[in-house]
Computed example of a mutant assay.
Amino acid sequence: MQQVNGVVARAKGEPVRIEKINIPDPGPGEAVVAIQACGVCHTDLHYREGGINDEFPFLLGHEAAGVVESVGEGVEEVAPGDFVVLNWRAVCGRCRACRRGEPWYCFDTHNALQKMTLTDGTELSPALGIGAFADKTLVAAGQCTKVDPSARPAAVGLLGCGVMAGLGAAINTGNVGRGKSVAVIGVGGVGMAAVVGSRLAGAGRIIAVDVDDRKLEWAKNLGATDVINSSRADPVEGIQALTDGFGADVVIDAVGRPETWRQAFYARDLAGTVVLVGVPTPEMKVPDLPLIDFFGRGGSLKSSWYGDCLPERDFPMLVDLYQQGRLDLDAFVTEEIGLDQVEQAFARMHDGDVLRSVVVW
């Protein structure tokens, strides 16, 4: 066991603070990773606000890259010294989804079995089973994906959550391909990644929708061909007008609210696809829609789990594209900060001033 610094949320709504935490030696199937960079994601703020569950105290942070320090018995996926990106869906290889060759839908993903603790022995709940706002963290070895060690940690670590979710929502879930039209509703970090993923996949028209002109300008710089400020114009009408009156082939809701999902539903073409990747809260309901509209419009209504990614397949490929200059992950890193600036980063994120603040060691 060793002791390191970590960012802990002790109670709902309270400011986070740096505390000493205990990291157990890795057991069977586990690994200890020395963190090099970790993005500040909105999910971490949800944890602090009690929006995920009430299992306080939380060790926050999950969009991370680092170096494997030690591994437990039976670990073959990675070895000490490997540079890895962490993920929060380590697949089991045994459930019905894995057995039928669809491990990205794994129904029995897992994390480390041992618990990290405060110095008084209080067990910590690591955010998304990772807890990477810490000098080191304990994870399941399957949560570590080895990638090119020359890549910039602050950039490639973002594949661990938001960027992968958006890229995957477009490429994996939405099946965006050459010449297709795509609309992305909400261009925060996840939505911006969906814009980038659509461009990477060869989409012909990419329409970004948001209420913030700053974000829309960022989206144009990252590949959006058109933008709509939905605080000033009806997004459904705007998307239809830009697609010859038909609607987009794929509409990605990166907000996750009933009103934005309804917009996505009606802004798609006949036989088009709606992808929900924005995370709703438990009390939100599917908006009241005539059943004939579900039937008459055809197509697909999908939710995207983590961009339907398979880390061992997708992370190395995307890091290679980044290294080749074909995927601009650096554009998502608005600022690099220290571990003691996470609370301030939450405020800047809430105000829409950043795509990502990234803690670097």
Rank of each mutant, 00 (worst) to 15 (best):
G157K: 14
A9N: 01
W361T: 11
E49D: 08
G189P: 00
K285Y: 08
A254G: 01
D330W: 00
I207M: 08
G197C: 12
A11T: 12
G51K: 15
A169M: 04
P149N: 13
A170Y: 06
I23G: 02
M164G: 11
V156I: 02
E73F: 10
K12I: 09
F107M: 14
R89M: 13
T334W: 12
V139D: 04
W218T: 06
D288W: 12
P316G: 06
P290Q: 07
G296S: 12
D308I: 01
D328C: 07
A31H: 02
D135I: 03
E283S: 12
T145F: 08
G27C: 12
S198Q: 11
G162E: 13
G174A: 05
G74Y: 12
D25M: 12
W88C: 14
G325K: 12
R326L: 09
V275P: 04
G238M: 04
V78I: 05
V163N: 13
T243I: 06
D226I: 06
C161F: 10
D328N: 12
Q341M: 10
D293A: 05
Q114I: 08
A9F: 00
G174F: 04
V360E: 10
G13L: 01
F133V: 07
P149D: 14
G296E: 09
P57C: 02
V163T: 13
Q36Y: 09
